[in-house]
Design a protein around this nucleic acid. Structure first.
Lengths: 192, 192
DNA sequence: GATTAACCATACGGATGAGTATGGAATGCT
DNA sequence: AGCATTCCATACTCATCCGTATGGTTAATC
C-alpha cells in the first residue's frame, strides 16, 4: 500500500493534483484541502504544487470545475433516454440510491457552502438537477406549479438524506431497510 | 453601531461568551469560531476568555450544549399539546416554516458535521425530532414501517431545504411562493 | 477604606500553513 | 551527446491563531 492509489513513480500533471484534491475533499472535506498534506499524499513536496498552480485557491477552483464537468456526463445523460417519465423517475431514484459513491463529493461540498468558491458551482449543479426533475414531473402530468414544488421537495429530500445518513450516519439503516425507504420515496413523491 | 449587539460596558460571564459564540456560529459557521475574533467582537481581549474557559474546545462544547438545551423548550413543546395529529402536523410544518431564525444555528452545524464535537449533538437533536414526527405519523394512521419512512423523508426534506434555500439561496423564492411550497409539502407528505 | 476575589490587558511562545526563492534532477528535442 | 524545458526539493519568510504567564484593574465584602 503506497501513499497514493497510483504507485507509479511518474511525474505529476495538473490533472493529477485536481483528482487528488477531489478525493481528499470527498474524504475529509474542503477545509482539509491543504497543499502540504496533498503533497505528502502524492509523495512529493510543495515545490511541485506551486509549479502547476499559482495558489491553493486556483487548485480548488480547477478541481471544482473538473468535478462539475465530470458530473455532466453522469447518470442524467443515461437516464434521459427513457421516454416515459413514470418509468424514468423511479429508475432515476433507484439508480441514484445505489450509486452513492459519486455523491461523496457533493455531500462534502454541501458542508462547504460558506466557502465563496463552492457556492456558484453548487448552485449551478443543483439547479440543473432540479430542472431535470421539473421537466420529468411536468411530463408525468403535474401542473406547472405543482411540478416545480414537487421537484424542489424531491431534491431537498435527496440533499437532506445525504446529510443525515451519509455524513451524520443517522438513521443507522440496513440495506434492506434502505431499499424499502427508496420505494417509500417513490410511492410518496411520484404521481401515480 | 457598537462592536457587539450589547453595548453595555458590564463585565462578561461564561454565558455571554457562549451566546456570542452561537451567534457567530449562526453567521459564519463553526470554523470561524476563533477566540481572538470573538474577543474583538465583545470588546475585550483573550485574557478575558481564558479566565472563563480552559480552551476553545471547551467553549464550543458549552455553546453546543446550551443550544441543545434551549432547543428542547422550543416549538415542539408547544405543538405537542395539539391532540389530533392531522391538525398537529400541518401546524408544525407552518410554524417551522415561518420561524426560520432559530434554524440558522442548525443550518450552520449541518455544515460542520465533520467536526467530532458537533456530530453527537446533531445526532441527538435530529433523532428526537424524527421521533416526534414518527409518533405523529403513527397516530395519524400510518402503519409502523410507513410512519418511520415518512418521518425520515419529511425530516430529510426539512434538512435539505435548509441547506438549499437557506445556505445556498436556491431557489430564489418569494414569500408567496414559499407559502405555496409549504402547502405542497403538507399535501404531499401528510396522509389525508 | 482596605483586602480579597473576580475579571481583564499585555506580551510572549509555539505550532501550522500559505507562498517565495533558488538550485538541482529528470525528460524531450536536435 | 548536448541543451533547454519541465518538474521537483530544500530552505526560507510571513501571517494567523491557540495557549501561557503575569501584572493590573474593577467589584464585592467586612
Amino acid at each position: 500500500m503506497n501513499a497514493s492509489s497510483k504507485p507509479e513513480r511518474t511525474r505529476l500533471s495538473a490533472e493529477d493534483w485536481e483528482d487528488a484534491a477531489l478525493s481528499l475533499i470527498a474524504e475529509q472535506g474542503v477545509n482539509a484541502l491543504a497543499v502540504e498534506a496533498l503533497a505528502r499524499q502524492l509523495g512529493v513536496t510543495k515545490g511541485s504544487f506551486y509549479w502547476h498552480f499559482r495558489t491553493r485557491e486556483a487548485l480548488l477552483q480547477a478541481a471544482l470545475e473538473r468535478w462539475e464537468q465530470y458530473g455532466e456526463r453522469e447518470i442524467i445523460s443515461q437516464i434521459e433516454a427513457i421516454p416515459d417519465p413514470r418509468v424514468r423517475l423511479p429508475e432515476l431514484f433507484r439508480r441514484v440510491a445505489h450509486e452513492l459513491q459519486p455523491h461523496r463529493v457533493y455531500a462534502a461540498l454541501l458542508k462547504a457552502l460558506d466557502h465563496p468558491q463552492v457556492v456558484p458551482v453548487m448552485a449551478r449543479v443543483s439547479q440543473r438537477r432540479m430542472d431535470f426533475l421539473n421537466t420529468a414531473f411536468t411530463q408525468a402530468g403535474l401542473p406547472p406549479e405543482q411540478a416545480l414544488n414537487r421537484s424542489r421537495l424531491t431534491y431537498a429530500a435527496y440533499v437532506g438524506f445525504l446529510q443525515l445518513n451519509f455524513t451524520l450516519g443517522l438513521p443507522r439503516i440496513s440495506h434492506e431497510e434502505f431499499d424499502h425507504y427508496v420505494e417509500h420515496m417513490i410511492a410518496t413523491l411520484i404521481p401515480h
